[in-house]
Amino acid sequence: MVFVLALAATTAQAAEPSESQLALYKVLSGRHQEQSCTHIVELSPTPTTDLVWLAENAEQPAWVAIRAAECVLELYPEPAAPHITRWMQSDDTLGLALLTVSRLDGLPIAQARPFLEAGLAGPHADRVRPRAEKLEQPELRALVDIAPRP
């Protein structure tokens, strides 16, 4: 019982945003985001961590998580690579996975390739595949042909 309560407390605490995460949340929650990611991250001393946290924990309004993830993909794809790979592989991150696919053409091929490979092998492959077939980089489109179909 004590263990359960402790776990619940830990989970609840994990879903509480820090001050800098709240500052980003406020900016990203506007209906029409006017500011660039470069400008937004000035609000946080730890932007990669905070944006990844918002991408994975912000639920309302729905666009906060997507916008946070987009800033991650635009500014911090390398340090956030393990998180992005997880987005491609997890059942509960379909929106983040499809967002990532839509941004792969903007990444160096060496960065984009493992993300797409993870997506084509992940739980959202049926939705990733048709979108990957329309990417501009031929090296990425070629991955679709060699990926096993579910």
Binding site: A55, A58, P61, A62, W63, V64, A65, L94, G95, L99
Partner: peptide, 19 residues
């Protein structure tokens, strides 16, 4: 639709309300 569904890509009742 993706931006309105959020990170999980599915629509909760709250998501549908805001949508």
């Amino acid at each position: 639709w993706i931006t309105n569904a959020g990170g999980d890509g599915t629509f909760s009742s709250d998501d549908i309300q805001v949508y």
